[in-house]
Write a protein that binds this DNA or RNA. Structure first.
Lengths: 148, 148
DNA sequence: TTATAGTATAGTTAGTTGATAGACAATAGA
DNA sequence: TCTATTGTCTATCAACTAACTATACTATAA
């Protein structure tokens, strides 16, 4: 698994929205500033998140975006797969988009890739944005200037 | 960690040389055929492996390439890092080529990336080409047409 | 001397990443 | 209704990477 800026940005956006889940609407501009993401690029990512049902929005003045479901219902893994595709180290062991390899049936490396894939999935699917938010809040107690 | 064709090819090359460790010289052409790797691309990979000290060669007729050290002294992880670079899912937690992130000190995602990085390293550094060769040999007993 | 086999480096093509630009659509409030 | 504000949509682009492909060169055994 490789996380690019796109995936990293998406995670930061969802975390920002999670931390503001009770408040409601948040403006794209604000997220851009807080998370240091180019606003025009951020807009595109928001559209993907909207299309996948994680975010809803309201246009016009006092408009903004907000989470479509509670943070505890959104796994980090879902967002990574949405933005980056398969989490497998190599496509022959991908569950979401497998590719054929003539050696597959008897490839001596497959065991390694499968172990790594399974562990990775366990970690990222075992963490929700509620867990991540909680971490942030715990950090904020100790250092109140936390701004993410 | 993402394994591309380059890395995948390199692993297959080293496995081929490991299986032929006792025999000695192996021609690039032969490896190309057995492992189904474009010969010109394979040559480039061999040069990288040579430069890093894993392979030695002899030119001219009856020339060829061979392993510079025994298979049990070569970890899969070394080759992956040589060909693909860092094994970290994201550069902020890379040990080989770390990058700065303004959120790093208090990023709530870092824990996930670190766990994945450490597990990945454990797997690929805990396996040598002797282990992989052994797997192949065990497979071959059951299905003698194994050609990798 | 010549065929053989590795060495070295420079292209090439297609696709991806990380943006930027600009026109458009909805809506709250004057 | 007009206008400023905010999100929506599509196009474009430069830089980079992956995976080859091409070509000239060097060493060596017979």
């Amino acid at each position: 698994m490789k996380i690019t800026f796109k995936g990293d940005y998406a995670l930061k956006i969802l975390l920002d929205l999670s931390l503001n889940y009770e408040k409601g609407l948040v403006q794209i501009k604000e997220i851009s500033k807080r998370q240091d993401i180019p606003v025009k690029y951020l807009e595109q990512i928001i559209l993907i998140l909207k299309g996948a049902g994680y975010v809803r929005s309201k246009r016009g003045p006092v408009g903004g975006v907000y989470l479509a479901k509670p943070p505890e219902k959104i796994k980090v893994g879902e967002i990574i797969r949405l933005m980056e595709g398969s989490t497998s180290p190599i496509s022959c062991v991908s569950r979401t988009a497998p590719s054929k390899c003539s050696f597959f049936r008897r490839c001596p490396f497959v065991g390694l890739w499968t172990e790594i894939r399974d562990f990775t999935n366990k970690i990222i699917d075992g963490t929700t944005f509620a867990d991540i938010s909680e971490k942030v809040e715990n950090m904020s107690v100790k250092s109140p200037d936390y701004s993410i």
